[in-house]
Design a protein around this nucleic acid. Structure first.
Lengths: 295, 295
DNA sequence: ACGATCAATGCTTTCAGGGTATCAGATGGA
DNA sequence: TCCATCTGATACCCTGAAAGCATTGATCGT
């Protein structure tokens, strides 16, 4: 038995006429009759009640017709889908991003992609920048939005946005009313910042902002999540330098201020150059279109 | 493309080795390699990444593998099922019965059959005896439990039970305390009985019970459903002769009494002799076993 | 460098399955 | 009743898809 036989069967089941069914299969009646007989012999079941005048389905034939319709439908769908998957029109893509990017470029990126490739299932995965780098290398992620942490030979990179850092503090903090805030003004402040092991690009930007003026920042707390940092600042445990896009949704007791010569961080979209998932390429293309809009 | 090709593909996808996959398909490696190449060419998709040393699935190949597993599973299930259906092990059977038989033989019959043929879907259909006869002829029902209404050449018949008629009345009815109740005692009573058009066997049994003594019963109401008859008796609108099996669940205000020379009705299982549904035969066999237990 | 392994290619062969001609049973009109 | 016609089954032939065998070419381990 084969799908071809099922198609023969379906042709006869639908027309109930050997000649016409054979014609539909682009063949002559005699070999068609033989095929039907063969099907019945191999299945060991009479599918048609027939004499030289009439053809009718047996009950078993009626049931088999339903089953064949399903099987043939799924069969053809499978053959069609594999082409779509190979061309990236369908399939799955695992997409990682650092938490605070969820507030800026990620929604736009995801929405544009979902419109362009509605049949690709996007698996979103929020991670820290370090985790993202590891997962990109390991192949656990197909693409990710993270901070540009420099040279990465096996990754292709698309710049999505530039983010300046701003400083956040409680509204009752002395610095809340100072005109200019730079490294010198923060020399004695308690700084809260993510550890280098979690967000290397962010932390090194903060560090060099201070060290360029010969100052060693007084980092008192090192939570891994930006969310936690904001909460700790709200509790009055220190001030923090965070990406500007995170400053739009601060709690009531907090205020953000610009920094003089504020450090800039590049938010990039990255994917392994050697990716075998064809769904990734259009994702990167959409990233590039966002990049063009940026310039 | 054909299921055979899918099987080739699956063999290679599972072994990732042309030689072993070919062996599993009982063929030598060269034609197997050609078939895989053919599949990729017809689908227009690279399914395997391979050199002379390693074989690996592409992402499209991985997806196709899942789809193939489904399709092949359903394909084989369909081929297997058609045999089961033809042998009556699986399928559907439409079974009709008159309402009051639901209280006597039907539960036993249905239960025994469901145990013997768990994969046959029993479609139960409660009907009046006349409707049942029509549907058996029309082929809308595969088998039915009804009253024996005499000669029916195109039907096979199995006696399932003999039911005597009893008379029901309100507890406060004068006849409730009379010793013997026969046609004479009922001469002046208001009788409630189903019309001959709905239940010919039942009605003619009632009629001849009276006419044997030269009495014409005074039928005042002719509801189609036994259920309705009982309710009308409860309302005091008359008395009724109903099958004994219906007397076990009378309401509180009603009482049933035996009749002298009570009429008997045969409850039979019937199916068209020419039935093409193979699920019916065991149903009839179970009917016969009930018949044997009856003697 | 060499042998072992494994997929690809070339050539031959076979049989599954298609084509044509014909038969046989059933139906309906003259 | 008989014949024309329709329809499925059979007989026989033929083609090509696909299998086998022999061999090549590439890659890896020793």
């Amino acid at each position: 038995m084969d799908t071809r036989h099922m198609r023969y069967f379906m042709a006869l089941a639908e027309t109930l006429h050997f000649g016409r069914a054979a014609g539909r299969m682009n063949m002559s009646q005699p070999p068609f009759s033989r095929q039907i007989a063969m099907i019945e012999r191999t299945l060991g079941v009479k599918l048609f009640e027939r004499n030289s005048r009439n053809v009718a389905l047996t009950p078993a034939g009626k049931h088999f017709m339903k089953d064949c319709r399903n099987v043939l439908g799924q069969f053809e769908e499978a053959c069609r889908d594999v082409g779509l998957i190979a061309s990236g029109m369908k399939g799955e893509m695992r997409f990682g991003f650092m938490m605070h990017a969820a507030h800026s470029v990620v929604p736009q990126l995801v929405q544009l992609y979902a419109e362009a490739r509605p049949d690709v299932r996007l698996v979103l995965d929020e991670r820290t920048p370090t985790e993202i780098d590891e997962m990109l290398v390991a192949g656990t992620l197909d693409a990710a939005v993270t901070f540009d942490c420099g040279y990465a030979p096996h990754l292709q990179t698309v710049l999505l946005a530039r983010e300046r850092l701003r400083i956040i503090m409680r509204k009752d903090h002395p610095l809340a009313t100072v005109g200019q805030i730079g490294p010198e003004e923060l020399r004695e402040e308690k700084i809260i910042a993510a550890p280098a092991a979690t967000a290397p690009a962010l932390r090194s930007a903060i560090n060099s902002y201070f060290s360029a003026r010969g100052i060693v920042p007084h980092v008192v707390l090192e939570p891994r999540l930006q969310h936690t940092i904001i909460q700790l600042v709200a509790k009055g445990l220190g001030v923090a330098l965070i990406p500007a896009s995170l400053c739009t949704e601060l709690g009531a007791g907090l205020i953000s201020r610009a920094l003089t010569n504020a450090p800039q961080l590049d938010v990039v979209l990255r994917a392994p150059i050697t990716t075998k998932n064809p769904a990734v390429s259009t994702f990167m293309e959409i990233g590039k279109s966002i990049q063009r809009a940026l310039l």
